[in-house]
């Protein structure tokens, strides 16, 4: 039961993250909304993994491993986005 609840929460997070990305104009808030969106998708994936529990594990380990990889890759993408934003801001300063 808790898996479905968290799955629905993840779906709501996806909606919130998407809304934040489309409405807010500050670049950092968009990057932040992007992370909210990512967190929501991983939670949806985690709910599916939780339902697949079995063979003595609390959740299906394969999607959990992939989520783990996804979190690290999403973080790498966020660092690149922040670096781009800072470089743009520096250029605007100089011009």
């Amino acid at each position: 039961m808790s898996a479905t609840l968290f799955g629905l929460m993840g779906a709501a997070l996806v909606g919130i993250g998407l809304f934040g990305m489309l409405v807010r104009t500050q670049v950092l808030l968009r990057i932040l909304s992007f992370n909210l969106l990512g967190g929501g998708i991983f939670i949806v994936f985690g709910a599916v993994a939780r339902r697949g529990a079995g063979a003595g594990f609390g959740g299906d380990p394969v999607p959990q491993a992939i989520i783990l990889t996804g979190i690290v890759v999403a973080f790498a993408a966020t660092t690149l986005a922040v670096a781009l934003v800072l470089r743009l801001a520096a250029n605007q300063d100089r011009s």
Binding site: L8, L18, V48, R51
Partner: peptide
């Protein structure tokens, strides 16, 4: 979008497929 994703969650197949 959120509602569609929520519907997907509610309509997941009952014997949840698992690689465990």
């Amino acid at each position: 979008v959120a509602a569609a994703l929520g519907a997907v969650i509610l309509l997941l197949p009952e014997p949840a497929p698992s690689l465990a």
